[in-house]
């Protein structure tokens, strides 16, 4: 097969790409008692996927991605609390718009810098939003956040509440599927290819005349909007919003999820989120300190020896033992 055909084929949907979704549906029937947890996993996957777009594809290292997650969560929270607007789908849309707007505004200015300054600026943006949420107690509930939010039915039909785990799970799954297809289309488009180019060789992309800054800002904005959707899902599923949605721990957490799974490869977010959330669920409650220690050591080992995450390790094994197919 010649190279162009091979390239074109690479981006077509493969049969195995249906497997995760079938597995997710199988989980729906197999583990009816764990659907609340399943929803959390789905939210984390979406959040990690949004980070993958900036970190894995555009190569922008950020420590402040929770800013957009939090913006989305607070958007649906405040709409439900103050305006009584608790229709879930329009809530997601509003969250995407607000988080995307923040992403666009901050991206326009932040992305002029790089390296340490960029890292610091993303951190400061998040800390700024966190403090704003802390200060504006009348609107945001301040330190206590907004507990006890309730949301309306999906399409006016399916009850959607902390008590309705089944519809919640399917709702999150459907949202994730739509967002995933959007991201997949995006990264395999010429736009996505140019993002990869910017990540791999900034200088050359400038030299060939690619609009580097504009591409980065667009990717940052889309990613922010997706993170906002993830945050909104989080708020709707849990029925509360508090300052923890905006913290450094959440930013670091999602970074860890994505890195463990492998970044810049779409499915890394899935692998990482499932592995991380399962381990956390099993270990963190019982042995919080040992969990933290294990997490720290794992990160150190990953940074030193397995820079492409779990999927990357399998790829390396396959290359070593599975012949030439890549």
């Amino acid at each position: 097969m010649n190279a162009p055909m091979e390239l074109a084929r690479r981006h077509r949907l493969q049969w195995w790409e249906a497997l995760p979704w079938i597995a997710a549906l199988a989980c729906f029937f197999a583990f009816p008692n764990y659907l609340a947890f399943g929803t959390q996993v789905l939210v984390t996957i979406l959040f990690a996927l949004s980070l993958d777009l900036v970190l894995g594809y555009a190569g922008i290292v950020t420590l402040g991605h929770a800013a957009f997650f939090g913006a989305g969560a607070y958007t649906v929270g405040m709409m439900a609390m103050h305006w009584g607007w608790n229709e879930p789908l329009s809530g997601l849309l509003a969250a995407a718009l607000v988080a995307g707007a923040i992403g666009l505004a901050s991206g326009l200015v932040l992305l002029r810098t790089q390296g340490l300054a960029l890292l610091m600026l993303t951190l400061c943006t998040m800390a700024l939003l966190e403090q704003a949420a802390n200060m504006g107690a009348e609107w945001t509930g301040g330190f206590d956040g907004m507990p006890g939010l309730s949301f309306g039915k999906i399409f006016g039909l399916f009850g959607f509440d902390v008590l309705y785990y089944k519809s919640q799970y399917l709702y999150a799954l459907a949202t994730l599927l739509i967002c995933f297809l959007a991201v997949r289309t995006l990264v395999y488009s010429s736009f996505g290819q140019s993002l990869t180019g910017i990540r791999e060789n900034l200088l050359r992309m400038h030299a060939v005349g690619a609009p580097v800054r504009a591409r980065q800002v667009i990717a940052y904005t889309i990613s922010a909007a997706l993170a906002g959707v993830a945050g909104a899902l989080f708020a709707q599923a849990n029925g509360y919003v508090n300052l923890a949605v905006l913290g450094l721990e959440r930013s670091a957490g999602v970074l860890i999820v994505l890195i463990l799974g492998g970044y810049g490869r779409l499915y890394g977010a899935f692998v990482g989120a499932i592995a991380y959330m399962l381990l956390e669920h099993l270990l963190a409650k019982a042995y919080p300190t040992a969990w933290q220690l294990g997490l720290g050591v794992t990160l150190i080992v990953v940074a030193l020896f397995a820079r492409n995450g779990v999927i990357g390790m399998f790829d390396a094994l396959r290359r070593r033992f599975g012949g030439t197919r890549t």
Binding site: Q292, G296, T298, L299, A303, L304
Partner: peptide, 27 residues
């Protein structure tokens, strides 16, 4: 080993070191 590595790997390593040291002190 990570002097010439990407920023991201350095961030990961040092975040991991933070976690490990925090846990070690707590223990």
């Amino acid at each position: 080993p990570l002097y010439r590595a990407r920023e991201l790997d350095q961030v990961l390593l040092t975040i991991g070191l933070n976690f490990a040291l925090i846990a070690a002190v707590t223990l």
